[in-house]
Every structure is written in C-alpha cells, then in structure tokens.
Simulated assay, not measured.
Amino acid sequence: MYEDLNRLGLIEEDEIELDDAALSLALLDHPGTDLATYYDLLDAIETRLDSVGGDLASAAERAEALAAVLAGEFGFEGDSETYDDPANADLINVLDRRRGLPVSLAILWVAMARRLGWSADVLDLPGHVLVLIAAEETSVIVDPFANGVRVGTERLAALIEAAAGSGRSVTHLAAMPNRAVLVRLLQNQASRAEQAGNGRRALELYVRMTTMAPAYPHAWWERARLELADQAIAAARGSLGAMLEITRDPALRRRVTKMLDALTAD
C-alpha cells in the first residue's frame, strides 16, 4: 500500500488521477480492502455520465449532466449533519455512504469529468472548494457539496466573505494542482484528528502528506511540530531540514533556521 504513496510523490503532476490517488490514500486506513468494488462503481458512474452527457459541448450542459448523474442518480451529497466525521474525507467511506466534504466530492466530480475528456478543476476558497467546468471558451462554477448548484458572482463573494471575512476579493480564486487537492483532503483528516486529541494520528497523516507532496513546506512544518510534541527531536530536525531545502521564502527560512538552532542548542 505504501508503494502507491511513494509513487504519488515521484510522478509528474499531470500523471495524477484524482480518484485513483484518493482511493490509494484511503486504502492506507482500510488494509485488506478490495478496491475492485469501488472501481466498478466509478466505472458505472463514468458509463452513465457518458450516456447522459457524452455529446454535450457547453460547460453549462456538462455541469448539469454531472449534477444529474452524481447528485441525482447516484445520490452523492454534502454531509452537513455530521460534517466533521473523518469518514467524509476518506474516499472509500464517501463512496460507501454517498456523503462527503466539499473536497472529497470535488475530487469525485472532477475525476468523472476528466474521464470523459472534459476540462475540470478544483477551485480553492478559504474553508471551501468548488469545481470549475470549462468548454468552448466558457466556464461555470458549481458546488458539489450543494448537489452541483451553479455558483455565480454573488454566491461566490458570499462564500468567501463567510469563510474569510469581508473585503476579500473574488479574483484570488485559483485552480488547485492535483497534489494540492490531495493535501487538502489529508489536511482535513489531520485537523480533525488533532482536534479529537489524537496527535499520533495527525502526525501519521502529515507523514503521508510529506511523502506524497514533498515540495509543500506547510506539511513539513506541521510534521516537525507534532514530532517535537512526541519528543522525537531527531525526526523533527529531519523534517525542518527537509523544509529548509525546499522553501525559498526568506521569512520562512529564518523561522526554520531559528528552530533548528534552538534544537541543536538543546
């Protein structure tokens, strides 16, 4: 299982298939699970989506087809009742329960769209993610957590303001690279584990992040923090050293260097 995690850290960004990668990450917590059933379900969704919308050319029509199949026929929806349930960020559980977080549902929507050759990306918002469907020089934004509802300018501004406070510009919305999406998925799990007092579980998740996405400095910082909390000083030094190798931000480098000097002094 960990071979797949190591492979994710080595392959090129555009080689990552989000549904396959998310299932591989989930399998780490479900040892012995046969993924064939889950791939069969994904194939069935793809087949149905192709039947309903394979010939559609416009972004709006494709978004409607995704909503009709994923939310309408297969019943995938946002879990607003038990939002913080860790199962919502685990694609195996999401496929079983047909419920999930914005990021896990966005992975499903984008993966299904890409299987048909459609242009689709996960969009990063503070505390939320959306999906961008593009075609023929037009695009639409939808919210998989809300059954694929279209997100216009006003709704987008409201979502950003609710998460980050007033005054934030909607022009900061950006498509997320594949690894960043997967890091976001694991980050949700790690945050909930730490909130529940399970630091060891959170640390394991940060180890997965740094293995899968070694160029993301935040995960190394959080990993070092939890290693220090676990009195694993040598491991924390190693994580901070790795962080120092990848970041070029002067302020961040000073912060890491200061921490390394303090650990060396100790």
Rank of each mutant, 00 (worst) to 15 (best):
G199F: 06
M112I: 05
L101K: 10
G75Y: 09
P250V: 10
V142D: 09
A26M: 09
A44I: 02
I11G: 10
H218R: 15
H128W: 12
T82M: 09
G165F: 06
A113R: 04
G199Y: 01
V110C: 02
V151A: 09
I107F: 00
L173A: 11
D79H: 03
P144A: 10
A229L: 15
A134N: 11
A236N: 02
N188L: 13
M176H: 03
L91I: 07
R184T: 02
G127E: 01
L8T: 01
V122W: 10
S58I: 08
L91E: 02
G9Y: 07
D261V: 07
A163W: 00
E13D: 08
R248W: 07
N198H: 14
A67V: 00
S119M: 13
L156K: 05
T82Y: 11
V170Q: 10
E154M: 13
P126W: 07
L28D: 03
A67H: 01
R99S: 13
L42M: 06
R208C: 07
L123Y: 13
L41P: 01
R225M: 11
A251T: 12
D19A: 14
P177S: 12
I160R: 03
L173D: 08
T171S: 15
A235S: 14
F76Q: 03
T171D: 15
R192F: 13
A242H: 12
L101D: 05
M212P: 01
L28S: 12
D79F: 07
R248F: 06
A67M: 00
G241M: 06
D55C: 07
E154A: 15
E3R: 11
M209R: 02
A162P: 01
G32K: 10
D29T: 08
P102A: 01
E136M: 11
S169Q: 09
A111V: 02
I160K: 07
S166H: 04
I160G: 04
M259F: 05
F74C: 07
R253A: 14
V140Y: 10
M112W: 00
E3N: 10
A213I: 04
F74Q: 02
L101I: 03
E64A: 14
V207G: 09
E194N: 05
A174H: 15
T247V: 02
D19Y: 13
E245H: 06
R255H: 14
S51L: 11
A111I: 06
A111D: 09
V142R: 01
L263Y: 04
T257F: 04
A162L: 11
R237M: 14
R184D: 01
Y216V: 13
D96Q: 11
S51F: 09
R97K: 05
L95Y: 06
D34I: 05
E61W: 02
L41H: 06
E73S: 01
D40L: 09
A190F: 00
T257S: 15
Q189M: 11
G72T: 00
E12T: 11
R248I: 07
G53E: 04
A71S: 15
L35A: 03
G75D: 04
V140S: 08
A235E: 04
L240S: 00
D29Q: 12
D50S: 14
T82N: 15
R192Y: 13
E81C: 03
A120C: 06
L25A: 02
T153Y: 10
E222L: 12
L173P: 08
A164V: 10
A59N: 05
S58E: 15
A229P: 03
V110M: 00
T47I: 08
I92D: 00
A68C: 03
Y39N: 02
R7A: 09
L132N: 07
Y38F: 07
L252W: 11
D261I: 02
